[in-house]
Simulated assay, not measured.
Amino acid sequence: MKPRLNIVTIGVKNLQVSRDFYKNALGWEPTKDSDENIVFFNHGGIILGLYPIDKLAEDAEISPARSGFSGVTCAINLDTKEAVQELYNTVIKNGGKPLVEPRETFWGGYDAYFADPDGNAWEIAWAPFWNFDEQGSLIME
């Protein structure tokens, strides 16, 4: 089977708060398939979904209780260090919780971390050796 990741869904406490955060802090527009029950953001072949955490847990037949780090982060990869700093500042101004201030990394790049309103950890990163296609998707072989 060909590797294929199509949708990443994040369980959220308040769908409207999270929708507004991702739209205002990151500038992502919900797709036309979004409604009052679920929100989708198109990322050039991968869809980010937001769905009420209690309903997501029920669907997966697991407990919605969360404690601490989930072991998962999502990353937004950008073209420049300055873009990392600029997006980080915008996110924090729009309600993101600072986790790691923008910094030089041990691997030769530049990154920062923030948490969304539900505590999900996001990295914003730049690396001099990364390339992107015309849709802005990271190319790795």
Rank of each mutant, 00 (worst) to 15 (best):
M1C: 10
L5F: 12
L5G: 05
L5N: 11
L5K: 09
I7Q: 15
T9W: 12
I10S: 09
I10T: 04
K13H: 08
N14R: 08
Q16T: 15
S18M: 05
F21K: 04
K23G: 02
N24Y: 06
L26Y: 02
G27A: 11
T31P: 00
K32Y: 13
K32H: 12
N37M: 07
I38T: 12
V39R: 00
F40K: 03
F41C: 04
N42Q: 11
G44H: 09
G44M: 02
G45H: 09
L48W: 14
G49C: 11
P52S: 11
D54V: 07
D54C: 01
D59E: 15
A60F: 13
A60L: 14
I62Q: 12
I62D: 13
S63G: 03
P64E: 00
G68W: 13
S70C: 05
A75D: 08
D79K: 08
K81E: 13
A83S: 14
A83C: 07
Q85N: 14
N89S: 13
T90L: 12
T90Y: 07
K93G: 05
N94A: 06
N94M: 05
G95Q: 04
K97T: 15
L99M: 11
L99H: 10
V100W: 10
E101C: 04
P102K: 03
R103I: 07
T105I: 06
W107Q: 04
W107D: 06
G108E: 03
G108P: 08
G109A: 04
G109P: 15
G109T: 05
D111V: 01
A115Y: 10
D118A: 00
G119M: 10
N120S: 11
N120V: 10
A121Y: 14
E123A: 09
W126S: 01
A127Y: 04
P128M: 06
W130T: 03
E134M: 02
E134R: 15
E134P: 08
Q135G: 01
G136F: 12
S137A: 15
L138A: 02
I139Q: 15
